[in-house]
């Protein structure tokens, strides 16, 4: 329970960075923190106390009560890789904005428009 709440605090810090900061790179960093917090939260919900990693070895019986939940792990594996693609696209757009306007600051970008 306290672990869930601490993951929520991490999410909250990421939202703060995404909303309040004016630098585009700081906003991207906030987004990465949000991603990490959500991934960690979903893995925490699938943890079983005393459970093993979901890899079968020779002579091991496939009893669901002996393993941690493998379904969130598979889905989070997908989500991590998608996060990498999103970050690459965002950084590419930010670098392009920097080439055009000479700054990462959002307020100055709007001033220079037109």
């Amino acid at each position: 329970m306290s672990l869930y709440f601490m993951a929520l605090v991490l999410f909250c810090i990421g939202v703060y960075g995404l909303v309040v900061k004016k630098n585009l790179i700081k906003k991207i960093i906030g987004l990465v923190i949000i991603e990490n917090a959500v991934n960690l939260f979903l893995i925490l919900t699938g943890f079983r106390t005393g459970g093993e990693a979901p890899i079968l070895e020779r002579g091991m019986e496939a009893v669901p009560e002996h393993f941690v939940d493998p379904l969130p792990q598979a889905m989070i594996l997908t989500s991590i890789v998608i996060g990498l693609g999103v970050i690459a696209l965002l950084v590419a757009i930010s670098v392009r904005i920097y080439e055009k306007y000479g700054t990462f600051d959002v307020t100055k970008i709007t001033e220079l428009k037109g």
Partner: peptide, 9 residues
């Protein structure tokens, strides 16, 4: 949390 695949990725 017993997720070695995720740790590597």
């Amino acid at each position: 949390l017993r997720a070695p695949d995720l740790a590597i990725v």
